[in-house]
């Protein structure tokens, strides 16, 4: 693990514990997001990957442990500094989360209008530049309801980079995409990360695609980091867990069966028990 004062780390989690009611979602997670890299966080559905992004963005607070982003202790920040920090963090939601009553142009202009006082002509140029970067300058007049899922995510991406953030968090960017928009998104994530000098966090369970663009991967299961390393290291890893997840085996450390009483006993119980 890296030294917390190391400039190479933009965000770090130490011993982070988070529970919803009695359900423990994270129990002692240690994780580093390195500057300039694409860090992937993978794991089966329901491991709280999206929750992790919300914790990083300060929308949820952990019960224990620390979350630092750019040297700031996120859960302890008051509203104002937290909002200042969020201006430098973009987040791409799974659904895109575009404002449905605004056009594509206005959606991308939204954070600029809210946080800056730019003259209209400069604002227009900025929005068009961001839309050009995701290839949708021509779609500026469309409403969100007229966009395909992939296009909506690209608009959301343009909006996420509108304020030139230091970091972007992607929540399941590839879910439900056809191969072409998947390819477009992969290219955009890698390209934007390198050309804008961003740091990216990609939460996903699309193994092959995510592994292809990421520099470092964390595998989560049952509230813990079960394996981490570069994609090449993980492929070589002896961790049974990593092997099951990367190859998509139906049974292994993550069992095929949901925990249940003994099969034979269950069958012989007859109609008395449900």
């Amino acid at each position: 693990m890296q030294n917390p004062n190391n400039n190479g780390t933009l965000a770090e989690l130490r011993g982070m514990r988070f529970a919803r009611g009695k359900r423990v979602i994270f129990d002692g997670v240690d994780l580093d997001i390195r500057r300039g890299q694409i860090t992937a966080i993978m794991g089966p559905s329901g491991t709280g990957k999206t929750t992790l992004l919300r914790l990083l963005g300060g929308q949820l607070k952990p019960q224990a442990g620390t979350i630092r982003v750019d040297g700031q202790d996120v859960p302890r920040l008051r509203t104002k500094p937290l909002y200042e920090l969020r201006k430098r963090m973009g987040m791409l939601f799974q659904s895109g989360a575009l404002l449905t009553d605004l056009s594509v142009f206005e959606n991308v202009a939204f954070p600029l209008r809210e946080h800056t006082d730019l003259p209209e002509s400069m604002l227009r140029d900025l929005v068009l530049m961001k839309l050009e970067a995701v290839g949708l300058r021509g779609a500026r007049q469309l409403m969100p309801s007229e966009l395909s899922g992939g296009m909506a995510r690209r608009v959301a991406l343009a909006r996420a980079i509108a304020l030139d953030p230091m970091m972007i968090m992607y929540d399941e960017p590839f879910t439900g995409q056809d191969p072409i928009s998947m390819g477009v998104l992969l290219k955009l994530i890698r390209h934007l990360n390198d050309s804008l000098g961003l740091t990216s966090v990609v939460v996903s369970h699309d193994v092959a695609e995510t592994a292809a663009i990421s520099d470092y991967i964390y595998l989560l299961s049952e509230g813990r980091v079960v394996a981490h390393g570069t994609p090449a290291e993980l492929r070589e890893s002896r961790s049974q867990w990593a092997q099951q997840f990367l190859h998509g085996d139906p049974d292994g450390p993550v069992p095929f069966h949901y925990p249940a009483p003994d099969y034979l006993e269950d069958l012989l119980a007859g109609g008395e028990a449900r």
């Binding site: 919300r54 963005g57 929308q59 909002y83 200042e84 969020r86 201006k87 963090m89 973009g90 987040m91 939601f93 799974q94 659904s95 989360a97 575009l98 404002l99 449905t100 939204f110 954070p111 809210e114 946080h115 959301a156 909006r159 304020l163």
Partner: peptide, 17 residues
């Protein structure tokens, strides 16, 4: 619906209350 489609969360993450 804005809540269900994450528009409100999206705003929060854009530092808009």
């Amino acid at each position: 619906l804005m809540k269900a489609t994450e528009q409100l969360s999206g705003m929060e993450m854009m530092a808009v209350d």
